[in-house]
């Protein structure tokens, strides 16, 4: 959504600190994520980019020693508030992981699982429609429409990852988080996922963590560079890759690090 030529802010992180026990993993992160754009988070291993991503749907809750401070505002609501319903939150904010992780169930059940627990379909017919639409949006329908009742784990890696994306979008999330979604895929499957990301941004806001600088440059409109738990620089992707302001950013993207 654009208003007066400016993209609306979908997520606003304000003064976010994250600790694992005594160790601080993120330092005062302030970042606005624009709606219907792809934001890439880049940085060396251990820089905190995945930790930040996991803050956005409170995935860090499952780690006992992890403590998140600061505000993460989505739709004018601070998700770190006590009153936040985490199940609803994760309905709105889906996630796709590095390794494709379909449920050990049929293709159909993989997709219908989320809509079932969120009570999104009133009839078998409605559920069929959700499954079909989700698979179509994930560009997988044509390949699997005749084998919906076979196990999801029987697909190729790239197909499994698209199945996971279909599963994520089946509950119509507003935001999709992707943590290195292509690192286990071959270049063709990677290109299919990248094409998919481009399509999905029309209806969703996407945040992708990637180690591939070329991928960040190809798929995103905004890029944030993390280093040692700090957000060093963020801005439009073409600015970051052509003429970054910060020397650390430049050293990282040009391979002069360390």
């Amino acid at each position: 959504m654009r208003k007066n030529g400016v993209n609306m802010i979908k997520i606003s992180a304000k003064n976010v600190d994250v600790f694992y026990g005594k160790k601080q993993a993120l330092f005062n992160i302030n970042l606005d994520i624009e709606e219907n754009q792809v934001t890439a988070l880049i940085g060396p291993s251990g820089c905190g980019k995945s930790t930040f991503l996991r803050c956005l749907n409170r995935m860090n809750d499952v780690i006992d020693i992890c403590k998140v401070q600061g505000e993460i505002v989505i739709n004018d609501f601070n998700i770190n508030d006590k009153g936040c319903d985490v199940v609803r939150l994760r309905e709105k904010i889906g996630m796709v992981f590095q390794k494709p992780n379909p449920f050990p169930k049929t293709l159909y059940e993989n997709i219908s699982y989320g809509p079932t627990i969120h009570g999104m379909a009133q009839s078998k017919q409605e559920m069929d429609e959700i499954v079909e639409t989700s698979l179509k949006k994930a560009a997988l329908w044509e390949e699997v429409k005749d084998r919906l009742h076979e196990p999801g784990t029987g697909l190729s890696g790239g197909q499994q990852q698209r199945l996971c994306i279909a599963r994520a979008i089946s509950v119509q999330p507003e935001v999709i988080l992707m943590d290195e979604p292509c690192s286990a895929l071959d270049p063709i499957a990677t290109a299919q996922i990248e094409e998919l990301i481009d399509e999905l941004k029309k209806e969703h806001t996407i945040i992708i963590v990637t180690h591939s600088m070329a991928q960040a440059a190809r798929v995103s409109q905004r890029t944030g560079f993390f280093h040692l738990g700090e957000l060093i620089e963020h801005g439009s992707t073409d600015k970051i890759f052509k003429n970054p302001d910060n020397t650390k950013t430049q050293d990282y993207i040009t391979g002069r690090f360390g």
Partner: peptide, 9 residues
């Protein structure tokens, strides 16, 4: 090499 930033320039 797919140069970026200063290398690209």
């Amino acid at each position: 090499r797919q140069p970026m930033a200063i290398d690209l320039r």
